[in-house]
């Protein structure tokens, strides 16, 4: 007979899946262009990102929202995938610890980015 008496527990995954999904969207649509700009075009002198213009951008609320979105969401995305990839690689030790570790890291990055943006 099947295990009809089996009790199922609701997973807390929807919270993290939502953040993972938001990060996946940002990392797909915005991050490639951003890497191209900050990682290649600006260092190679093709484009400029001078302090005054970036500071002005980060000083208004629209700019702050954009910046926290492109920093925090991809971090949640990455931490979620890395946490699950550990299981894929059969690293199943201390699941509880690593859950706090990875999602905690994304949380800290979010708070730090928020605090910096408020400080500007």
């Amino acid at each position: 007979m099947s295990k009809h008496s089996k009790q199922y527990q609701r997973a807390d995954e929807p919270i993290f899946w939502g953040l993972f999904g938001a990060g996946g969207v940002v990392a797909a649509f915005a991050t490639p262009a951003l890497i191209l700009i900050t990682g290649l075009l600006v260092p190679l002198g093709v484009l400029q990102l001078d302090y005054a213009s970036v500071n002005a951008f980060a000083s208004n609320w629209f700019g702050k929202l954009i910046l926290i979105a492109v920093i925090a969401f991809p971090m949640w995305h990455a931490c979620h995938r890395i946490y699950h990839a550990m299981h894929d690689l059969k690293v199943d030790v201390a699941r509880g610890f690593f859950k706090v570790f990875w999602y905690g890291m994304a949380f800290v990055v979010t708070i730090a980015a928020g605090a910096y943006l408020i400080a500007i």
């Binding site: 991050t31 951003l34 995305h77 990455a78 931490c79 890395i82 990055v109 980015a113």
Partner: peptide
């Protein structure tokens, strides 16, 4: 790489 880039932006 997505995560490391987030840290570089931070």
């Amino acid at each position: 790489f997505v995560g490391l880039y987030s840290l570089i932006l931070l």
